[in-house]
Every structure is written in C-alpha cells, then in structure tokens.
C-alpha cells in the first residue's frame, strides 16, 4: 500500500490558539478515513493542512509525496462552511464547472465539451441535474452541499477531502451521499470529517479520533473508554453501526 498523506509531528497555531498538537498520521491509498472529535478539536484544520490552505507551525506535511502547495488539481475539497459568495451571478452548472479549471491553462481559458459532459454526469450522480440552471443563491443548504461535492468530484481528484459534508442533508440524502462515496472510494482516497459516528463507522474503512492531539487511528471500532477520552465525557456505545449517543446528563459538548 502506498502512503498518500503523511503528517509528521505537525502542530498548527492560529496566533496563540493551538488547533492541533504534535500529530503524526499516515493515510494509505484508497483509504476511507473518518475523522471525529468534539468542536474545535482541529478536524477542519487537518483537512486544510492537506488541502494546502493552512501551513503547519511545526512538523511536516506530505501529500502524494509533495508539499501540499504542489498538489493542485489532485485534491478535491468540500469545505465545512460556505465561505463563498452566494449572491454571485452563477448558475449551478457554472459553479460545478469551476472544478474543471486548473492553474495550467488560465490564459484565454475556455471550458471544453468534455468539461461540460463531465459536469452533466456528476450532476446526474448527485441528483442535482434538475437544478442546473438555478442561481446558486436560490439553493437550500443541502442542495448547495451537493453542488460543492459535485464541484470537488468533477476535478477527478486523487484524494477527496470532505468537511462535515452531510451536516445539512436529510436522512435519505445522507445515505445516498455515503453510498456514492463508497463507490468512488474504489478509485480515490477519501478523508471525511463527520459527526454521524454511527453512520461513519459503517461506511469508513478507518477512523481517527481527534481532540487537538490524535487519540486513535485504526479500524472503525470504538470503545467507551476511547470516546470518553476524546469527548471528555462518558459515551454510550451501542452495537457496531448503530448511532452512539452521549449520556443525557452529559449532553453538551458533543455536537456542533
């Protein structure tokens, strides 16, 4: 197995805030890694490191054997928050098309027919083809999320990073997205942050538990003790594949 992402003793500080501390993590090719952890535990920061959006304060990050600033076009990224301009005069098709742009041919760039075909295919797969002419500001949160997943997939990336991609989706769309990801995982590595622990452990191949430090990286089987450590409160662990619940008296601090 080839290692596609390698973090070595990585720490990230935002000013004085330590977001992640001394993390070492290897991710293999075609891994489907789920990352869980409480709010502010550095989950988004890990994805941003891999995407090259954040630089490590110390330690080293290698993605596909390169520093993350040289992997453009090979990494698809679906952000957690939409920092994008939702009032932008853009149709859904145009927004997804931007995933086909690369830094190599910006001069007088025109999208080719193959780009349009790829975009149509992916929109069908994510069931957003009906929305293709809709202005992006007129989408619901869940529809927008699917548009952003489509935009990342249409890049045909080698690694797909998803930051809580199903947070605003209904149950049906969630399982649709997860099974789609499972199919795609046959060709590409997927790293996904999620709060749906039950669902995550039944789809992903491995799991990382994060709370500033890395507490666990391995098979998607969690123990009470581990979750207690990570979340800082007792967690009731039910059978594999069934949603785990935080005990009611410690209800806070689990979900976003």
């Amino acid at each position: 197995m080839k290692t596609v992402v390698e973090l070595e003793n990585v720490s990230v500080f935002y000013g004085n805030v330590r977001a992640i501390s001394d993390i070492s993590l290897k991710i293999e090719e075609k891994e489907f890694l789920g990352i869980i952890g409480p709010n502010g535990s550095g989950k988004s920061t890990i994805l941003k490191l891999i995407a090259g959006l954040v630089k490590p304060s110390s330690g080293s990050v290698q993605v596909l054997g390169l520093p993350p600033c040289n992997t453009h076009g090979k990494i698809g990224y679906v952000p957690q928050r939409f920092n994008l301009n939702r009032d932008f005069p853009f149709s859904v098709t145009e927004a997804v098309l931007t995933g086909r742009l690369t830094k190599h041919n910006l001069f007088m760039h025109q999208y080719a027919d193959t780009d349009f075909t790829a975009v149509e295919d992916i929109m069908h797969k994510l069931e957003i083809y009906d929305l293709k002419d809709r202005q992006i500001g007129q989408l619901s949160g869940g529809q927008m999320q699917r548009v952003l997943i489509a935009r990342a997939l249409v890049m045909e990336p080698e690694i797909l990073l998803l930051d809580e991609p199903t947070a605003s989706l209904d149950a049906g769309s969630k399982s649709h997205i997860y099974s789609l990801l499972k199919d795609i995982n046959e060709y590409i590595t997927i790293i996904m942050v999620s709060h749906d622990m039950g669902v995550v452990s039944s789809y992903v191949k491995s799991l990382a538990c994060l709370n500033v430090s890395l507490f666990y990286h391995g098979a998607p089987e969690l123990t009470d003790t581990l979750l207690g450590q990570v979340y800082g409160c007792p967690v009731e662990l039910l059978a594999h594949g069934v949603p785990h619940r935080v005990l009611p008296q410690h209800g806070e601090g689990y979900h976003d």
Binding site: G52, P79, N83, L84, T98, K103, H109, R151, M155
Partner: peptide, 23 residues
C-alpha cells in the same frame, strides 16, 4: 477578458480557487 474564467472562479470562491492552485 484574457483571464476571465480565473477571475470568475476567484470571485465566486476564493478558498476553492486557492485549492485548485489559482494565484
């Protein structure tokens, strides 16, 4: 005009533009 698609992508979503390697 010459860099229209690059500007368009950048104006829509700066973070994504950075991820795909736009300057």
């Amino acid at each position: 005009a010459v860099f229209f698609n690059a500007f368009k992508t950048y104006l829509f979503d700066e973070e994504f533009a950075q991820v795909i390697g736009l300057p």
